[in-house]
Structure formats: structure tokens, C-alpha cells
Design a protein around this nucleic acid. Structure first.
Lengths: 245, 245
DNA sequence: GGATTCTGTTGCACGATGTTACATAGAACT
DNA sequence: AGTTCTATGTAACATCGTGCAACAGAATCC
């Protein structure tokens, strides 16, 4: 990942300087801001990976800014505050903060928590930054239609055979819709796969599904993704997210 | 989103029980575990959305388990520990925890932090293809229409066959209203189940009801949920609470 | 050309579901 | 109350669909 850019929002200049300096010494890009206007400038203008937001900002209110940001942005926010009562922390979480750290704090610990939030964001978000590609994510898996690569939830690459890939694409394209063996077989052949349209004997699809399950299901004996509809066929049973990358 | 499933890992039974109970009262599914083996069972077996991991687990080490999980899984982990020194917290973050909470803690605050981590995970992945989910609660049971999973009052998963699931859905949709065998059979077929509308011989429904009773009634011989209306059919005899999730 | 991987075929085991037969419980009638 | 009749519960069996290991032919790679 690129060097993380962190927006440090605090109206106290000493504190702001201390934090930015510390963060810069620890491999991040720290951008200072003292009020909502400056926050806007940075957020709207450039890329910001995380916001460190002080709760008490002179006459402005960090909580309010957080709530506001959350309605329009996905950017991770860590609230920082001298107010350390549980009720005050909970208020922070309630307006959408990802973490809440009481002042005074150990800078090393702050760094650890920043990293935790960033890596959670990264783990959950797309890792592929390519162009003109469609990618799909489902229950932790990441599938890049262009390269044909598929990454497990632990981001380990798994190799699918051609037929398995085709099967996955067909099912992926119809999430939550049960497909009969007939339909699957037809789609497979159309998808520019091997021509063996030989579907007379039938059980090929079952075996193929079984093989795919062995590769992508956590517990192939109890499939969560490729479910069987008895008497019908198979369903891709989880939500799918589609990216343009 | 479906109801979040939280794995509570603590070797102290009282603590474990307190936490699971609290979480269950707050709209989550809490699954208890006391050691690494039990964690494995849950993680490998079913879906787990977040792990609450105690650091000191008898002769096992929560930090080590966390490190291990992190190498293979993406699941969010919140460490919980009586060890509250900054260095110990940092160790938690170092092995990949998403958050670290010191005991004793305010349960409400724990809940807020769980939600923060879950929503960070979710925000980073906005779904394109999504399905509305309905969940039902009745006399301690929890049924998630999306996953088709049903949990006993102790949050133990019970496996229903497809036909049993369909039957439950039909009855669930008509609480306190007696349904004839005819009606049930018709609904079952409409619900996209097997097409054998062969209802000539009749007794299939009775047997099916009996099988379902064996799975969800405390005492199948004296059914409280699926009662018989002699000369009519069957009734779902308890109140049902419906959620949109 | 030989080794390796992919893919379809086949047979068997198992689980899910309907059918049947019999036991029991309730209702109706005497 | 006792008798008879009907409805329901359920064990045992039959049937069918699916999972899957093992095999074999085809395709692919050195």
C-alpha cells in the first residue's frame, strides 16, 4: 500500500505539531488542520486515508464534524479527546468514529491503533488497482475477472481450472438465483468453453460443482456459497460486490 | 446485513456467560468458545463476523491464537484482557487485533466498539447485489430467512432439511392461524420447493410436521409451538417477532 | 513422447422425503 | 362407562437426488 496520509485535526497548535511530527517520523504523511474549513480542503482536495479528529475544537465540535463526514464519506476516523468518560466515548462511536482515544495518550499506542484501523480498512477493501477490469467480492473472496485470478479471504491465490472458472463466472453473474444443471451447462458452453456440449449423461455439473466447492468453500461438506437446491440445481447463495477497477 | 455472529472466547465460564448473554440481548448471535479447538470448530464450520478473544486462556495464549488466525483469515478480532499496560495493548495490536479492550470494561462500550469494527468492515465493502433479509424470533428461537439458518434458544445451530425449512416458513408466515394440510401442501409447492404436488395420499404433511417437531420442540410429545387443530390441520401457536435486517 | 493436469463417466453410499401400516388418542353414540 | 369410529402420531420401508471417490480419456506442458 501507498504511504498512508493522515489528517491531524486539533485546534491546539502544540498538540497538532507534536502529533504530525511524530506521525511523520513513523512513516506516514501527516497533514495538519485546525478547523472544519481546513478539513474540507484536504478531504475534498486530496486523498486522505484516515482522520485524527479532536473532539473539542474551539467553538467547533469534533463530534458534529465526524457525523457530517460520515454521512458523505467512508474515510476512517479516530476521535481524540480529553473527555474520557464512557458516556463520552460512546458518543464518539455513536457518531461513527472507528476508534476513540483519550488524552493524554501514548503516541506508540496511537500509532498501533491507527495501523489497526487502516489495516482493517485495507483488508476489507479492494486490493486490486488495475484499469478496465471487473472484480467481484463475495464472502471474503476476491475475483478479478480480467486476470482470472482469485484470492482467498486470507489473500492467498487459488488456482481454478478453466471449467471451474467458467462455472464460477456463471454463478457469480446470477447471485441468489437457482440455476438448473441445464442452464449451467448451456451457459458454460456459450461462455466460450470447451465445446463438449455433451450433456446427455448429466452428472458432470455435479462433479464440477463439487470440485469448485473444494477450492472455495471453507467447509465443503457444508457449503455456504454454492448451495444445492434439491430438485432444481445450484445457487450462488451470498451477496456479490462488483467493482470497476 | 444479516445478524452479526460473534464468537466469544474466554476460559472463565462466568465471564463467557455474561458476555454471550449480554450480546444476545443486544441483537447479535453470540457463540461461546473456551479454547483454540472450539474456536477452530466455529471458524471452520460456520460464518463468524467477529471474534472477541481473551488474552489469557488457561495454558493457551490468546495472542498466539490471534496471530495464527490473522495469517489465514480476515475475520475482525477484538482482544479482551485484564492486562492493560500500554505495552501489552501494543502487543495485541501487533499480532493483528482490530481493537484491544481492558477488563473490566463497560459492556455498552464493548458493544459500541464491536459495532465500530463491524461497520468499518461493512463500509469498506458496499454491496451491489443485495437481498433484503427477514429474521424471525419466536420463543427463544432465531430464524434468519436469508441464510436459512435456525438457532435454538441457546444459539446452537439446528439443521433443517429443505422441506422442513419450507414448512417452517409457511407456518411462520401465518402465526396463530390454523392451516389445513391442503393449504400447507400448496404453499410448500409454491414456496419453490420440490414439485411433487402429489398430495393424493395425504399423510406426508403429518410426517413432516412430526419431523419438524422433533427438531424444534422442547418436548415433541407435548408440542407448544406446532400445535394440532384436530379435524383442521396445524397452527403455529406462539408469537413471532419479525426483523428487517 | 512422456508426464501432468483437466474433465467427464460410473458406481456406490447416504440423506431427504413420501408411503404404508399400525398404534393411540379423542369424539360420538349407545 | 363402554363401544365404535375417525383422526393423528410415528416407526419402518421405499424411492430418489446428490456427493464423491475412483477410473479413464483428453488436453496440455515440457
Amino acid at each position: 500500500m501507498a504511504i498512508p496520509r493522515i489528517l491531524v485535526v486539533d485546534d491546539d497548535m502544540d498538540m497538532r505539531q507534536m502529533m504530525t511530527q511524530f506521525l511523520r517520523q513513523n512513516g506516514t504523511i501527516a497533514l495538519p488542520a485546525a478547523n472544519e474549513a481546513e478539513v474540507r480542503t484536504h478531504i475534498d482536495g486530496g486523498r486522505v486515508d484516515l482522520v485524527l479528529l479532536d473532539v473539542m475544537l474551539g467553538d467547533e465540535n469534533g463530534l458534529e464534524i465526524c457525523r457530517q463526514l460520515r454521512t458523505e464519506q467512508d474515510v476512517p476516523i479516530i476521535m481524540v479527546s480529553a473527555l474520557s468518560a464512557d458516556s463520552q466515548r460512546m458518543e464518539g462511536y455513536a457518531v461513527g468514529a472507528d476508534d476513540y482515544i483519550a488524552k493524554p495518550f501514548n503516541p506508540e499506542l496511537l500509532l498501533a491503533r491507527i495501523k489497526a484501523v487502516l489495516s482493517r480498512t485495507r483488508r476489507s477493501a479492494s486490493l486490486v488497482h488495475r484499469r478496465n477490469t471487473k472484480s467481484f467480492r463475495f464472502s471474503g473472496w476476491l475475483y478479478d475477472a480480467k486476470s482470472g485470478e482469485i484470492l482467498s479471504p486470507a489473500h492467498i491465490q487459488v488456482t481454478l481450472s478453466r471449467r471451474e472458472t467458467a462455472l464460477l463466472q456463471v454463478l457469480l453473474a446470477n447471485p441468489h438465483i437457482p440455476l438448473t444443471r441445464e442452464e449451467i451447462a448451456t451457459s458454460l458452453d456459450v461462455t466460450g468453453e470447451t465445446q463438449p456440449a455433451n450433456e446427455a449423461s448429466g452428472r458432470a455439473i455435479d462433479v464440477l460443482v463439487g470440485r469448485l466447492r473444494n477450492k472455495i468453500e471453507t467447509n465443503p461438506k457444508d457449503p455456504q456459497i454454492l448451495k444445492t437446491e434439491r430438485g432444481v440445481g445450484y445457487v450462488f447463495a451470498v451477496d456479490v460486490e462488483v467493482f470497476e477497477t
